[in-house]
């Protein structure tokens, strides 16, 4: 049991704002390193040319504080809230929203959300998508993930049969990547969630993208093998950087798993473009 601790909405607003601006104008070290490895591994000249541009772009984005990609995304926020935290000066989700609003307004980021039917822009990139885990302790961890629409469009979920097993899972993931082709801006990172329910598999897949790129599943040898085998299959498709052909279609496959109902085998695939942007802070 930790001591009760106050965290102010002001601090949350400020933190969320800075995280989204930073996430949009830089890549994390693990993503940069994975792209450098990809450049070494890629054998197609056109693929090498694309990867050179991607690496040059990141340096430039940092230096000029320009977004890495014009699609600065729908704002996804993962919160890990210690149960001994007391939020002061307002409402937690209201503060997260305000931080997102300020990031997209003051950071000159694109407002990419609209009414699904009328297609009228919401003009402030609100509302964000917020997921909260309540945990022990008195801290608040905030992860900001601006998610682009092109790669999100290529993601999917399937309710497989228990009989499909490991091979069925692998086939579904590889098929998603083949179907996506050049659309999600390869080289991609593939997050996969196995088990739980339909919506939990999707959330597991999305959260798997937050793992440092290329770090194998830390908990389960079977998943480590599945990640490795699936990545090898994906890189045999020949899609390559930007779909111009090559041997680096994905930088990594990252899988997480939970128990599911005896009747089912939910599998979800979250596809992330090479501009894999996320930043976190601990309050």
């Amino acid at each position: 049991m930790t001591e009760l601790r106050n965290i102010s909405c002001r601090e949350i607003i400020h933190t969320v704002k800075n995280l989204f601006i930073k996430a949009n104008t830089s890549l994390t070290d693990d993503v940069r390193a994975a792209l450098c490895r990809a450049r070494q591994d890629e054998t197609s000249p056109l693929g090498q040319y694309v990867l050179d541009q991607i690496l040059e772009n990141e340096v430039l984005a940092n230096r000029t504080q320009t977004p890495v990609c014009q699609d600065t995304g729908i704002a996804i926020v993962f919160l890990e809230l210690g149960q001994d935290v007391h939020i002061t000066g307002g409402n937690l989700y209201g503060a997260v929203s305000e931080g997102v609003r300020l990031a997209y307004a003051d950071g000159y980021l694109r407002k990419s959300l609209c009414d699904p039917l009328s297609r009228t822009n919401t003009t402030d990139n609100l509302p964000p998508v917020i997921y909260t885990d309540v945990v022990s302790g008195n801290h608040l961890k905030i992860v900001a993930m601006p998610k682009g629409g092109g790669s999100e469009n290529m993601s999917g979920t399937a309710m497989l049969l228990p009989a499909d097993g490991c091979e069925g899972i692998k086939k579904y993931i590889v098929d998603r990547v083949k179907t996506a082709g050049p659309n999600p801006c390869p080289p991609i990172i593939v997050g996969a969630g196995i088990g739980g329910t339909m919506e939990q598999a999707a959330l597991l897949a999305k959260k798997a993208l937050l793992r440092p790129v290329g770090l194998p599943n830390p908990n389960d040898e079977r998943l480590r093998r599945l990640e490795e085998e699936t990545l090898a299959e994906i890189n045999k498709t020949g899609i390559g950087p930007q779909g111009y052909g090559g041997c680096v279609t994905a930088l990594a496959v990252q899988i997480d798993m939970r128990p599911c109902h005896i009747a089912g085998l939910p599998v979800s695939v979250a596809i992330q473009c090479h501009a894999a942007r996320h930043q976190e802070a601990l309050l």
């Binding site: 694309v50 541009q53 991607i54 040059e56 772009n57 990141e58 430039l60 984005a61 000029t64 320009t66 977004p67 890495v68 990609c69 014009q70 682009g148 092109g150 801006c185 930007q242 111009y244 473009c273 090479h274 501009a275």
Partner: peptide, 13 residues
């Protein structure tokens, strides 16, 4: 024509 996606800082120049 294809332009490379995700290199907006470069293209904007």
């Amino acid at each position: 024509f294809g332009a490379v996606g995700g290199i907006a800082a470069l293209l904007t120049q």
